[in-house]
Design a protein around this nucleic acid. Structure first.
Length: 596
RNA sequence: GGUUCCGUAGCUCAACUGGAUAGAGCAACUGCCUUCUAAGCAGUAGGUUCCGCGUUCGAGCCGCGGCGGAAUCACCA
């Protein structure tokens, strides 16, 4: 809170007078006063009671009394249990309001450079709902960190090689009849995904037949013709066979075109894109160095391992017996590469919690290998999005496709808007754009308002709500404030008040105080959100803000020429609220329409 | 089985990292469009915060032990 500093020193003085003891830094605990109680800020006095040698109530009373007497900031007080509720003198509140920062500019620089890795798609299938959560989280965390004063570089790593990529390539080659995105009109990533599913279907058939002819399941899955052909293809790729590489480039090209469309629509972006095909060999030299140091060991079959059993982890393979690299090897390589590229202060991996163990090991290995920056790495682990039917599985086709979902959200927004009947021209280009903004606003808010660590449920049949604690509600509130401000501009003598004109005698009611306090705590909230890497904090904050404004707005007409000064002050608060709302929305990637 | 995460109203989620009487929305019910945008507002109802013990002025949050769910423990990525 903005008063904490001044209040803190005032309380320290009062405390010394009363009890003859100095307060040490950090012993003062403030919190926002609950709505039910009178006051603007609350001092928790339990911690002070001991030093004072009195009961919490008694201590609170004495401090409160003394503050009102000697300090200009506090106008009244009340004590409930160990909570000292202080009412800030209104002139101080106005003063605080005028000193508020414009939220168009970020917080003071921390001088830190932070890398955020997110998205990390495979190029064998289109993006789905789980990726949307990842992308929105990563993008939003990046924006929040940026606003909190950090230099942020957003990076993507594309898993563009491996057996899974070969599967869709092989299926296309065998059964594709030369289909292309152009010839079919399909989005490239969807076309490739189609053949990934096709591979799996045919592969299952082969396995079934082999089992019927007397093989065990394991044997069948290992010997099916399709899987061995896929393996051959991978070997050819690694040997840089021209035909295979050409097919690979062509199909990956289709996928990238498709991804670009989806990323753009989601509103996310990257400062640098890494490709696994370009970095997968880098980890090997690091592993070799680890062997020399004796941190790693080689088994008889030639494979390389790390033993972490003394640190509560298992043994982990870092290099296959045939010398090829595994996932961990690659991630070691990319981490070192990125540190060379950027010399970051911190790197955040936005990756699902199914990989918690992987990152634990990754950081541990880097640390053991002597990279002191390993402790600056952080895995932002987020939980899965569940469907009512359970977990999504791309091979089984039980996924919610990202593009389809965004279409549905936009269509739903259109349907609801048309039903409400407030668009002048519901089929104009501008209206279409608005449906997109509202539909995606609903989706983004829905996914981001939940704590990343928590597993969440998405029910596609019930589609996402547009009422209550939702993106559209907040967008709507913003649009209405903008409408008020537009009308005010057209009314003579009702311009938005300027900062200099704010005077202590302007009347403020309790709802307004709540709103102002909320806006004043904006920076604090951002710092909190950036420390905890949680867009959910921003989302819940902006909802509270919008809700408080709505309640205020309904009880207090703004256009009231009889009380011009009051109305103009409210216009100022409205303008402040709307810019805070739109700032918050932009931090979580949501557009704040001017009209809707 | 080991490790990690989760468990809060019928449902989806909050609770400012230990503070006051655990809050919103949805669904249900009651009012409010001649009034700056009703995607709204006001109200009713809904709780043994999975269970037990402990730590202290104070526990949904911290510790221990259970119960339930999930992830992971691959020469897959």
């Amino acid at each position: 809170m903005i008063f904490e500093h001044e209040l803190g020193s005032a309380i320290a003085v009062v405390f010394k007078d009363l009890f003859g003891k100095d307060l040490t830094e950090g012993t003062l605990v403030f919190q926002a006063t609950r709505k039910e109680f009178k006051g603007d800020i609350t001092l928790v006095v339990f911690g002070l009671a001991k030093a004072a040698g009195k009961s919490p109530e008694e201590t609170g009373k004495l401090i409160g009394e003394c503050l009102v007497e000697k300090s200009k900031i506090v106008s009244s007080y009340n004590v409930i249990k160990g909570f000292l509720n202080l009412e800030i003198a209104r002139p101080e509140l106005i003063k605080a309001l005028t000193s508020i920062r414009n939220c168009d500019s970020p917080l003071p620089s921390t001088g830190k450079h932070i890398l955020v890795e997110y998205s990390s798609p495979n190029t064998n299938k289109p993006l789905h709902l789980g990726h949307i959560r990842n992308n929105l989280l990563g993008y939003s965390v990046g924006e929040i960190l940026k606003y909190a004063g950090n230099r942020v570089t957003k990076v993507n790593i594309i898993n563009d090689r491996g057996i899974h990529i070969c599967k869709s390539m092989l299926a296309w080659k065998l059964f594709g009849n030369g289909e292309t995105p152009d010839s079919t009109g399909m989005k490239g990533d969807h076309l490739v995904g189609k053949y990934y599913v096709e591979f799996d279907r045919r592969f299952r058939e082969e396995v079934k037949e082999l089992i019927q002819s007397g093989k065990t399941k394991e044997e069948a899955e290992n010997q099916a013709p399709l899987i061995s052909q896929a393996r051959t293809m991978l070997q050819k790729w690694e040997a840089a066979d021209p035909e295979t590489v050409a097919l690979w480039s062509m199909m990956n090209g289709w996928v990238y075109e498709g991804f670009d469309v989806t990323y753009k629509r989601m509103g996310v972006d990257f400062d640098k894109t890494y490709y696994e095909s370009e970095t997968y060999l880098l980890g090997k030299s690091i592993v070799e160095a680890g062997l020399e140091k004796g941190v790693l060991y080689r088994r008889d079959d030639g494979s390389v391992w790390i033993d972490m059993r003394n640190d509560g982890l298992d043994e982990k393979l870092l290099l296959r017996s045939d010398g090829t690299s595994v996932y961990m090897t690659q991630d070691l390589g990319t981490a070192v590469q990125r540190h060379q590229d950027f010399d970051f202060d911190r790197m955040i991996y936005v990756v699902g919690n199914e990989q918690d163990y992987h990152f634990k090991v990754l950081f541990h290995v880097l640390n053991k290998l002597g990279y002191d920056w390993a402790k600056r790495l952080h895995h932002l682990s987020y939980n899965m999005v569940d469907l009512p039917t359970g977990k999504m599985k791309s091979r089984e086709g039980t996924v919610v496709d990202a593009d389809d979902l965004m279409d549905e959200m936009r269509d739903e927004a259109e349907k609801i808007t048309v039903e409400l009947g407030k668009m002048e021209d519901p089929y104009s280009k501008e209206s279409k754009e608005l449906y997109e903004q509202i539909g995606l606003g609903a989706l983004k808010y829905f996914l981001l308002k939940v704590d990343p660590e928590k597993r969440m449920l998405f029910n596609p049949n019930e589609s996402i709500d547009f009422n209550g604690n939702t993106g559209p509600f907040i967008q709507y509130t913003h649009a209405r404030i903008k409408s008020v401000l537009r009308k005010a501009q057209q009314t003579p003598g009702l311009d938005v008040i300027s900062l200099e004109e704010l005077t202590p005698d302007i009347a403020i009611n309790d709802k307004e105080v709540e709103l102002i306090k909320s806006i004043l705590s904006f920076d604090e909230m951002i710092v909190d959100a950036s420390n905890r890497l949680s867009p959910a904090i921003v989302a819940n904050y902006v909802y509270e803000l919008a809700k408080t404004y709505n309640q205020f707005y309904h009880d207090n007409p703004i256009v009231d020429l009889e009380k011009l000064s009051i109305s103009r002050f409210r216009l100022y608060v409205s303008a402040l609220t709307s810019s805070t709302i739109s700032k918050c929305l932009s931090l979580i990637g949501i557009v704040a329409p001017e009209k809707m």
